[in-house]
């Protein structure tokens, strides 16, 4: 396995799966989907409002809406896979030593995995409609 394939026939014999082709297709399909999802995300968060007005109450009210949770779940899923696979391409291109390439990818996938779990928890593990109400009543009490 340590021997690098030198011809197409050798490469085909060595690599029985074609996962890189699948990723190539995925980057194009997810990219097309992300254009619409990200455009909507930027529109809602930066154009329709002043992004400096974003606070806990705003995010909590967003995360109380079912359609936002579904929208953001698709956004998180496609953006993380598309972005992390793109970073993986960059690591493959710019890290010349095999062991550095290996560890860079391990670190990347670990960080991405943790963040994906955190993002999914944020979207689905809490009832922000209740927490949002609690915070609004706190605000009302202090003013």
């Amino acid at each position: 396995m340590a021997v690098k394939p030198k011809t197409l026939t050798q490469a085909k014999a060595l690599y029985s799966t074609n996962s890189e082709l699948a990723w190539w297709v995925f980057m194009r399909v997810s990219g097309l989907i992300l254009i619409f999802l990200v455009a909507g995300h930027i529109w809602m968060g930066n154009i329709q409002i002043n992004v400096a007005d974003v606070d806990y109450a705003y995010v909590a009210s967003r995360l109380s809406k079912g359609w936002v949770k579904v929208y953001d779940t698709f956004l998180l899923f496609f953006a993380m896979l598309h972005g992390v696979n793109g970073l993986r391409y960059s690591i493959e291109d710019y890290f010349k030593q095999a062991n550095r390439r290996f560890w860079a990818k391990i670190i990347l996938f670990t960080i991405a995995g943790i963040l994906f779990v955190m993002g999914t928890m944020t979207l689905w593990a809490f009832d922000f409609s209740e927490m949002g109400d609690a915070v609004r009543s706190l605000d009302g009490g202090s003013h």
Binding site: D55, V59, M80, L115, M118, L138
Partner: peptide, 29 residues
Amino acid sequence: GIAIALFLLLHVLDISLVMYGPKVFNAFL
């Protein structure tokens, strides 16, 4: 692409801080 991907990782982290409640999240924002 690299800039957006790094921002994405940071952005998922910062919005996830909403889990720690209004005090932490508003101070961070």
